[in-house]
Write a protein that binds this DNA or RNA. Structure first.
Lengths: 212, 212
DNA sequence: GTCTATAGATCGATAGAC
DNA sequence: GTCTATCGATCTATAGAC
């Protein structure tokens, strides 16, 4: 048995990360209760005692993977405001990334997990919302307020409006995907859905002179 | 020990219903995996063997209580269209009942349960959506189409518009309640939230002449 | 139908050797 | 740190008496 020499070998032999990766996969697929430490250990290629030497308990391991997932998934979602394009273009682009994130399988599985375990661990659920949804909400609200100050939009309550735009983009897409009724509509339908939502938002909140 | 004489006594001694009631409470509180047949039997005041004489398995009992809950909770939600009041009044009234249902503790617990178990039992989740959300969606879409035909609204795609109105009314209210971030905002805030959503919807989809 | 008692399996967590 | 082996608790479901 040689010691690992390349970076890939060192990374592959980092049991801590192996365990985290295996736990993420297992919790997302099976849920908290059905995920067993035996399965996580097997998937990570270590013994169960090793898992417990890295993480105090099943609960601690769960919290670790949830926090990592929240940061990794939601961070990329930002309003890309170049300042040189219209609110319509900026919002449409933002809506596309949001809907993409919304229907991403990992994102859906994380959502299921958080909702399922919220009653057992309200603190973790609350922290996840503040690190995820609340950040995105504030980002969008700030953008709407800024464009209103510039006169390119006329939004009365930026936070309410942001919530409502997020809600319109959710529609029933999210719940249908969460319940496995429909994973992801065809691209054409999705595009039309997004355009309809943005158009409605701009008719409701566009500048009064030009209803772009 | 006298035999039960009044209807109330007969109902109270109906073990089938006692078990259903106990199972509903237990599943909603604890989730599918954490709910134990021991606890359900104890809460119903019967032995575990009796539970199994009424329901083939834990899974069958779960399905029974889910189907009953879906029917009971979602059925009351209807667009009350007297035909004599404006869309604004009709939609505002509908929005109030919808948000009330959305934030109802039993409704939230049912939602958590369905989402949590959707991957394990996609058929049950799908049937629940078709019996609940899909019905409400169709009801609202039909109303929007009808008002458009009458000229009191001008909705291009009634289904999309209905999804978007539901979504606006959700905002982040539902997710915050599901994650136990905020159970229910003060009545004033809620009213303002609803009025803002209806106003935005009517600016987007009202008849072109009068943007009521 | 209804009970008590228990089978049979699985789980989270740990002891002890190396 | 990492392993094997196991403890003690808990779960679904059933056998058997009444």
């Amino acid at each position: 048995m040689d010691a690992p020499r390349t970076a890939a070998e060192r990374r592959a032999s980092s049991k801590h990360d192996d365990i985290l990766h295996a736990a993420t996969e297992t919790f997302l697929e099976a849920g908290y209760e059905r995920a067993s430490m035996d399965e996580i250990a097997a998937k990570a290629g270590v013994s169960k005692a090793t898992v417990y030497s890295h993480f105090r308990s099943k609960e601690a391991l769960f919290e670790a993977i949830i926090r990592e997932l929240c940061q990794r998934l939601v961070t990329p979602l930002r309003v890309a405001d170049s300042g040189r394009v219209s609110p319509k273009e900026t919002l449409t682009e933002f809506a596309r990334s949001y809907v993409e994130l919304l229907l991403d399988p990992s994102s859906l599985a994380l959502h299921r997990l958080l909702v399922a375990e919220a009653t057992r661990d309200p603190e973790l659920a609350g922290a996840s919302y503040r690190a995820g949804g609340a950040q995105a909400l504030r980002g969008l609200a700030d953008y709407l307020a800024q464009e209103t100050a510039r006169g390119t939009l006329s939004v009365e309550d930026p936070t309410f409006a942001a919530e409502q735009l997020f809600g319109m983009l959710n529609g029933h897409l999210q719940v249908r995907a969460l319940l496995h009724v429909e994973a992801k509509p065809p691209r054409k339908t999705l595009d039309r859905f997004i355009q309809t939502a943005i158009a409605a938002f701009l008719r409701a909140h566009g500048p009064r002179s030009e209803a772009a």
